Amino acid sequence: MPKLLVIGGAGYIGGHMVSQLVKAGHHVVVLDDLSTGFQTAIDESHAQLVVGDVGDRNLLNALFKADRYDGVLHFASLIQVGESVVKPARYYRSNVANTLTLLEAMVEHDVGPLIFSSTAAVFGEPEYSPIDEAHRQAPINPYGASKYMVERMLEDFDHAYGLKSVALRYFNAAGADPSGQIGERHDPETHLIPLALHAVLGARPPLKVFGRDYPTPDGTCVRDYIHVTDLAEAHLRALEYLWAGKPTTRFNLGNGNGFSVQEVLNAVERVTGQRVPYEDAPRRGGDPANLVADSRAAKSVLGWCPQYGELDTIVEHAWAWEQKRVKLT
């Protein structure tokens, strides 16, 4: 039974990944400092939780000496674009320096391969859409730059040390596990679907719609929403790809379909049966009109196909989780 180390496995995407790995029969150890993750996201009867920092080299050495791992999945990073602009040092330390510490430890202890959680933010302002892997990388904020730097490190570590990896670039992760057992929790929350659902529940002030004058069919920004369970499935297939001896590479992950902010609000209203309280606001700087993934490479090479591509399904799963979470809190 393969043994895997999931770094950041108590977070949103990492928690769903752990659930998928356990269902697939893998032995899972989670390393998470719980700064943004939640211990309750981990079923410790099926996965071991080690509370600690991925930047702690002594801890990594101890983990890699204690047991043999068949792969590492790295989800631990800071993700708020706005915060990265005003606190770039924090982002480069957490996302870049800590990952360098991990890579050095993996090389020293001959651990691999690695699946890395990257982002569409590595592309910056899109030159065309849908965005494929060949699109120019020109990040416009420290968050995107930090992920771009790691992607470059992964290439160099492969060339120099033979550490194989796959970087998976998410577009807009959304939804919750269909079972309703785990879902999205961020503090502060910045993602559109949970913000809209929180507004419906009266858990926050009316949602702000930033801009209605974009060159899109209804004037609001268009984004590619990919169900978190489909993301987890892509990671499983990327692991199998590397275990088969395939080369280091990168894949864009999305549905290949864009939904506007207004379409998301309409879907939330259909699913909940309630009006979404919102206010129109001016555009935010740096928000592209249209961000949609070209995921044909992942589909062709990995044999991956999103199972939950319908917007209403994504919202339904998120809504079931949010209602449960409100009762728990």
Results as ranks from 00 to 15, higher is better:
239 L>Y: 08
176 A>W: 08
233 E>M: 06
188 P>C: 13
226 I>S: 00
204 R>F: 06
254 G>N: 03
256 G>F: 09
162 G>Y: 05
219 G>M: 03
190 T>G: 08
194 P>R: 01
164 K>T: 15
230 D>T: 02
236 L>D: 04
204 R>A: 12
230 D>V: 05
166 V>W: 00
239 L>C: 08
244 A>R: 09
247 P>H: 07
253 L>A: 03
190 T>M: 15
171 F>L: 01
214 Y>N: 11
204 R>C: 12
253 L>H: 03
208 K>T: 10
247 P>M: 04
251 F>L: 01
171 F>R: 00
164 K>M: 04
194 P>H: 07
243 W>F: 12
226 I>D: 00
234 A>G: 01
216 T>K: 13
201 L>N: 12
195 L>Y: 02
239 L>T: 09
191 H>I: 13
212 R>W: 07
202 G>H: 10
178 P>Y: 04
213 D>E: 10
167 A>W: 00
227 H>S: 07
252 N>P: 11
258 G>N: 05
254 G>Q: 02
232 A>G: 06
185 R>M: 12
172 N>V: 12
174 A>Q: 00
198 H>S: 15
251 F>D: 01
249 T>C: 14
223 R>Q: 14
223 R>N: 11
163 L>V: 08
246 K>E: 08
176 A>P: 08
249 T>A: 12
230 D>N: 06
165 S>L: 04
202 G>K: 05
254 G>P: 04
222 V>W: 00
168 L>Q: 01
191 H>A: 14
222 V>Y: 04
241 Y>K: 00
245 G>E: 05
229 T>D: 12
245 G>W: 03
239 L>R: 06
242 L>E: 10
220 T>P: 04
206 P>R: 08
226 I>T: 03
178 P>Q: 01
209 V>L: 11
211 G>D: 09
252 N>C: 12
235 H>G: 10
243 W>G: 02
165 S>Q: 08
182 I>H: 05
252 N>V: 04
246 K>W: 03
233 E>S: 10
239 L>P: 06
239 L>G: 08
241 Y>R: 00
201 L>D: 11
188 P>N: 12
210 F>T: 13
228 V>W: 03
225 Y>C: 00
252 N>D: 07
235 H>K: 05
242 L>R: 11
186 H>P: 04
258 G>S: 09
173 A>W: 03
165 S>W: 05
214 Y>S: 11
177 D>N: 12
180 G>V: 02
237 R>H: 12
205 P>A: 15
221 C>M: 13
192 L>S: 02
200 V>P: 00
198 H>F: 13
241 Y>F: 15
194 P>G: 07
181 Q>L: 14
228 V>T: 10
165 S>R: 09
174 A>M: 02
191 H>E: 14
230 D>M: 09
169 R>N: 05
240 E>H: 12
202 G>Q: 09
178 P>S: 09
245 G>F: 06
250 R>E: 11
210 F>H: 15
